[in-house]
């Protein structure tokens, strides 16, 4: 009887620990996540321009690797935003970087990985990292 109680107690405690862990789990870093798609900047923009809802259902919440030329780097307080050239003067592929970086230069051709959040005038990816 005593044994049963101990087992039951251990069950409840471990359940509670798992519950608390899941509840407090921080947003996962993207670095260890597998990419769902690899594409260059212009092609990605064209897909959104052509058919936004189709592109949304394909790319939203997905991890995407995008290659392109850096048009602009914006450092705002502790945030770095990268604008990749996508062959259109008004629209870019925008990455919000997970950690600020001052090493990235305009004109470099680079690949970034991020989570696609959708299309406004630009395709916006968050939690970006440079590969």
């Amino acid at each position: 009887m005593k044994k049963l109680l101990i087992i039951l107690f251990l069950f409840i405690v471990s359940g509670a620990i798992v519950g608390i862990y899941l509840f407090n789990k921080p947003v996962e870093s993207i670095e260890r996540m597998q990419s769902d798609y690899t594409i260059n900047a212009s092609e990605l923009l064209v897909e959104f321009e052509d058919d936004e809802s189709k592109a949304n259902s394909k790319y939203l919440d997905k991890v995407i690797e995008v290659n392109g030329k850096v048009d602009k780097v914006e450092n705002n307080e502790d945030k770095t935003t990268i604008y990749l050239n996508a062959g259109n003067p008004m629209s870019n592929i925008i990455f919000q970087l997970e950690t600020p970086s001052s090493a990235i230069q305009t004109g470099e051709v680079l690949t970034f990985k991020g989570i696609c959040t959708g299309y406004l005038m630009d395709v916006v990816l968050v939690r970006g990292v440079q590969l």
Binding site: L22, F23, N24, K25, P26, V27, E28, L60, D61, Q96, I115, T117, G118, Y119, L120, V124, V126, R127
Partner: peptide, 16 residues
Amino acid sequence: WSVLIKSFEFEKALMQ
């Protein structure tokens, strides 16, 4: 103004 709802980031994954 326009904003993508999915671009809001939370501290906890479950909340997001």
